[in-house]
Amino acid sequence: MSFTTHTEDFIKKLYTQLGIFLPSQLDFKEIAYKLDIQLYYWENPSQALFFKGKVYIFLKEDLNEQEMWQDFCHELCHALWHSGSQRKMPYSWIEYQEWKANSFMLHACVPTFMLKKLLLPLGEKKAVQFICEQFNVEPEVAYKRLQHYSENHSDERYALLERSNYIGLC
């Protein structure tokens, strides 16, 4: 039996409420629009800001498409789960928030509920490339996400391997 984490459940609920069910629907501009988050591009590192009850995400303008998607998801975590200025926080709390935002990014870029529906190719290299193509992420992100998925949903991965063997794919 497989269990999901709070982050996986949150992202599934969020995306479902936004009408996002497929990897092809993962568009950070559309997500920002639906969540009433103002998006801006600038030369500085990406960040989320809160001003007068409104959320703003500033993305570093010279990032490639995959990096922008990944940065958006990282900053989305700050926008949805965090508050206040990190300038006034103890360093350990900043580290914790950044760790949470990085974890959130992996799950928001490559949602478990979508990954479960895909038939991943056998072999790590092929699976990573497939995830890159389906979810528009960089190979390092796809690899980390595949590792998390395999560790936390090993029973489903095993069932996939068994099904592949049974139908003669291996």
Rank of each mutant, 00 (worst) to 15 (best):
H74C: 01
L14E: 02
E67I: 08
P90T: 09
W69H: 14
K29G: 07
F50C: 08
A48Q: 12
S2W: 08
F135S: 06
L169V: 11
L119M: 03
Q66S: 10
S2M: 11
Q134G: 02
Q134Y: 00
T7P: 03
Q86D: 11
F21G: 06
N165V: 12
S150I: 09
M105V: 02
L35I: 06
F58E: 01
I37E: 05
H78P: 01
K54D: 00
T4L: 07
A108V: 00
I94F: 02
H107W: 02
K100W: 00
K52T: 05
L49W: 04
G84F: 05
I11Y: 04
C132K: 04
L80K: 15
D62Y: 01
I131C: 04
P139F: 06
K117F: 01
Y56S: 08
N165M: 09
L160A: 08
N136W: 07
F104R: 03
W81S: 08
R87F: 11
D9S: 14
F72R: 11
Q129M: 12
Y33V: 09
F51K: 09
G53L: 14
F113T: 08
I57T: 02
E138R: 15
K29W: 04
K126F: 06
K116F: 15
L63C: 10
A79E: 14
S150V: 10
K34F: 04
I167S: 11
S2C: 01
E67P: 06
Q38I: 14
F104M: 06
S103A: 03
I37V: 12
Y40E: 15
M89H: 09
I11N: 04
L106I: 00
L49C: 10
K54H: 03
V128H: 01
N165H: 12
F10Q: 04
H82Y: 03
